[in-house]
Write a protein that binds this DNA or RNA. Structure first.
Lengths: 133, 133
DNA sequence: AGCGTGACTGATAATCATTGTCAATAAGGA
DNA sequence: TCCTTATTGACAATGATTATCAGTCACGCT
């Protein structure tokens, strides 16, 4: 009968996540601190992994092995991103017919419990301009 | 004028890599040791990252953030995998028309220097059978 | 074949992200 | 308000990867 409690920290984290950028747990933590919050790093990690498990945030593993988080659109079941390698800004993209394609390939090879990852990364217009600046 | 030198260690690593499985650097190191090699862990890491940079091995980042390596087919430019989450066994798959699709999406959003990742993971027939056994 | 130089190696320390620990705190139902 | 216990936060611990650095050896040159 133990529900999850809505604490000040969780509220803060949920609020902070209300953006369009992918950031690491550490980065979200810094961000929260800079806004005056006093949340601990471990708490941020715990909250983010819990939210990711619950499907409330998207998480991707970057090329360097860090896990990046971002709040995702409510109700969306499964989707993919075009993410900026520099600032983390991401847009959701549509990959038509990939689900069925993946399922077909999987059965063809006898693999079960299939899941897939599609990530496009690049440099967004703003960061490209900053580079040249 | 400093070319890369072909040392005993590198030969051993190249030889060991001649399989179809994705394994972490640590796992390859263990494997080499169990075969009687005396290579150091750091050397395995260095060789694998160098080979990955040179495009001679495939590398993917697993869900847990580990980097996994596997020798890739000579001459293949870019490809994707259906990989077993349990044993690492992988088959190369073909994702028709994805390259051009990725490029289109990228320009549509103004992103530059696009790269993409597509990974299918599942449980291979052998591991599924072992689970049930 | 013998030399010399600098790339390579391996043991180990250092780093970085993430998770575990545990006493103190505070949600939220009674 | 009171009690139970989920949650927190400071810090230690872990696990993967990278940096250090003195010793080694590949290999072009003579």
């Amino acid at each position: 009968m133990t529900a999850t409690r809505m604490t000040r920290q969780r509220r803060e984290i949920l609020d902070a996540l209300d953006t369009r950028d992918f950031r690491s747990a550490q980065s979200w933590h810094e961000h929260l601190r800079s806004e005056g919050s006093t949340v601990g790093l471990a708490t941020v990690y715990r909250a983010l992994t819990a939210l990711a498990d619950a499907g409330e945030v998207d998480s991707v593993v970057s090329e360097s092995g860090e896990t990046l988080y971002r709040r995702c659109e409510a109700g969306e079941e499964h989707h993919h991103h075009l993410r900026c390698r520099v600032c983390g800004r991401a847009v959701e993209i549509d990959v038509p017919s990939f689900e069925s394609y993946a399922a077909a390939i999987a059965t063809e090879h006898g693999y079960a419990e299939i899941s897939h990852t599609i990530e496009l990364t690049g440099v967004c217009p703003a960061c490209a301009a900053r580079d040249r600046g």
